[in-house]
Simulated assay, not measured.
Amino acid sequence: MLQRLQARDVVVESSPVLQVHGEETNITAVELQDGRRIPLDAIFAVATMTPHDSYLQHLRLERNETPMGSFLAVDQMFRTSHPRIWAAGNVVNPGANVPLSISSGNFAGAAANAALTEQEFDRAVASSQQRT
């Protein structure tokens, strides 16, 4: 990515920005941690997407490495690599806003319910076969 930007004469500064100078929407410069002050009239900043899923780390669930970060891998039913864990929203999709997270959470809940219902039916069938 860096090579592509540089090929288009885009300057990428890796030193953290300490202060943005200017008034209101009129940006005039940034002061960098390394002491340089760079005049400019626009800034493009990239956030690092970090899902708050560290409490699941010990489960060693599969992850998808994306250009936007590392997120839980799920199938079309939002099931993770663990057969009894479903995940939805922005822990699986870095671009998920609130409505999309609500929708995928609703679908994941329905999928989990269906899996539990299927498990109950399987147990009932096994129990009835033992009685005969």
Rank of each mutant, 00 (worst) to 15 (best):
V46P: 04
A47C: 09
T48Y: 09
H52G: 12
H52E: 12
D53Y: 09
S54F: 07
Q57Y: 12
H58A: 03
L59S: 02
L59W: 06
R60A: 08
R60F: 02
E62S: 09
E62P: 04
R63C: 07
N64K: 09
N64F: 07
N64L: 10
N64T: 10
E65W: 14
E65A: 11
T66K: 15
T66P: 09
T66H: 06
M68Q: 13
G69P: 11
G69M: 10
S70Y: 05
S70I: 09
F71M: 05
L72C: 05
L72S: 00
V74Y: 04
M77P: 02
M77H: 06
R79H: 04
T80Y: 06
T80L: 01
S81R: 01
H82D: 05
P83S: 04
R84T: 09
A88W: 06
G89R: 07
N90P: 03
V91G: 00
V92R: 02
N93T: 14
P94Y: 06
G95K: 14
A96K: 12
N97I: 11
V98Y: 00
L100T: 09
L100M: 03
S101C: 06
S101Q: 12
I102K: 09
I102M: 10
S103H: 14
G105I: 12
F107I: 13
A108R: 11
A111H: 11
A111S: 05
A112R: 15
N113Y: 14
N113T: 12
N113A: 14
A114N: 13
A114M: 10
A114P: 10
A114H: 06
A115R: 14
A115N: 14
A115I: 15
A115C: 15
L116Q: 10
T117A: 10
